[in-house]
Simulated scan of single mutants.
Amino acid sequence: MYKKILKIVLILLVFIYIIFEELIWEKFAKPIITFITKQEIFKNLIPKILNLNSYFILIFFVSIFVIVEVIGAYAGLLFISGHIVTAVLIYILKIPVAAFIFWFFNIVRPKLLEFKWFKFVYDNLILAIYKIKNSSIYIMIKGKVAEYKKFLKENGFLSKGRLKHKIMGLYKIIKHKITKIKY
Rank of each mutant, 00 (worst) to 15 (best):
G76V: 09
S54H: 06
L52M: 11
L77Y: 10
I41N: 11
I33P: 01
L78V: 01
T37P: 00
I84D: 14
V70N: 09
G76C: 14
A75S: 15
I36Y: 08
H83Q: 15
K38Y: 03
E40H: 06
I32E: 02
I59A: 13
H83I: 01
G72M: 07
L52I: 02
I57F: 04
K48C: 10
I49W: 07
T37N: 14
Y74P: 00
I71S: 01
S63V: 07
N51V: 03
K38M: 09
K48T: 11
I80H: 08
Y55L: 15
I49K: 00
I80T: 08
I71L: 10
I84W: 11
K38V: 02
T37K: 10
I59K: 06
F42N: 08
I84L: 11
N53T: 07
F42R: 00
T37Y: 06
Q39Y: 09
S63K: 07
I67P: 00
I49P: 02
K38D: 13
F42T: 05
V68C: 06
L78R: 01
F56A: 14
S81A: 10
I33Q: 07
I49S: 05
I67Q: 04
T34F: 04
L52C: 13
G72Y: 07
F35N: 13
V70R: 10
N51I: 03
F79G: 02
I64W: 08
I49F: 10
K48F: 10
A73T: 12
V85R: 12
I71G: 00
L45C: 04
I57R: 00
I41L: 12
F79N: 02
F61V: 01
I49Q: 06
F60W: 10
A73E: 11
I84A: 12
V85A: 13
Y74C: 06
F56K: 15
F42Y: 13
I64L: 15
L52R: 12
I64V: 15
S63Q: 06
G82A: 04
K43V: 09
A75M: 09
I46Q: 02
L52S: 10
T37H: 09
L52H: 05
L58C: 00
K38R: 14
T37R: 12
K48L: 15
P47D: 12
N51H: 09
H83M: 10
I49R: 03
V85T: 15
I67T: 11
Q39F: 11
L52Y: 08
K38I: 01
E40C: 08
A75R: 04
I57T: 04
I71K: 02
K43F: 08
F42C: 04
E69G: 05
F65R: 07
I32Y: 05
F35L: 14
I59T: 13
E40W: 05
I46A: 04
I80Y: 11
L45I: 04
S81C: 03
F42Q: 03
I49E: 08
L78H: 01
I71A: 06
V66T: 09
S63D: 08
F42V: 08
I46E: 07
V70E: 13
A73I: 12
S63G: 13
L58H: 01
N44Q: 14
V85P: 02
A73L: 15
F42I: 07
I32N: 01
F35G: 10
L45M: 13
G76P: 06
N44C: 08
G72P: 00
K38H: 14
I33V: 13
Y55H: 13
I33R: 02
E69T: 05
K38C: 05
N53S: 12
Y55N: 14
